[in-house]
Amino acid sequence: MKVNLYAGSRMALLLLVFCSSLAARDLDQDEALVLRQNGVILPLEQLLEQAMARHPGSRLLEAELEKKHGRYAYEVELVTAEGVVREIKLDASTGALIKDEED
Rank of each mutant, 00 (worst) to 15 (best):
Q46K: 12
L35D: 11
N38W: 09
Q50E: 08
L44F: 09
P43A: 15
S21T: 00
S21W: 06
Q37A: 15
D26R: 13
R10H: 00
V40R: 05
A7P: 04
D28W: 05
M11D: 02
Y6G: 07
V40K: 14
S21K: 07
Q46I: 06
R10W: 00
L22R: 11
D28M: 11
L44M: 08
Y6F: 15
Q50T: 13
S20N: 08
D26I: 11
C19P: 10
D30M: 11
E45Q: 14
G39E: 11
Q50M: 02
Y6Q: 12
C19H: 08
Q46L: 12
A24N: 01
E49I: 12
A24P: 05
R10E: 07
E45K: 06
D28S: 07
L42T: 03
D30G: 04
L22W: 09
R25D: 10
L47D: 02
D26Q: 13
E45A: 13
G39L: 10
L13G: 01
I41G: 02
L33C: 09
L33K: 13
S21L: 09
A12E: 00
V17H: 00
L33M: 15
L27Q: 08
Q46G: 11
Q50L: 06
Q29E: 13
G39W: 04
A24Y: 04
L13W: 03
L16M: 08
N38Y: 14
L15S: 05
S20M: 10
E31V: 06
Q46V: 12
F18E: 01
D28A: 07
V40M: 06
I41T: 13
D26W: 10
E49H: 14
Q46Y: 12
R36P: 07
L47Y: 01
L33V: 08
S20D: 05
L35K: 10
M11K: 04
A23N: 15
Y6T: 14
V17A: 03
P43K: 11
D26H: 12
S9N: 10
D26G: 13
A51D: 01
L44A: 12
A7N: 08
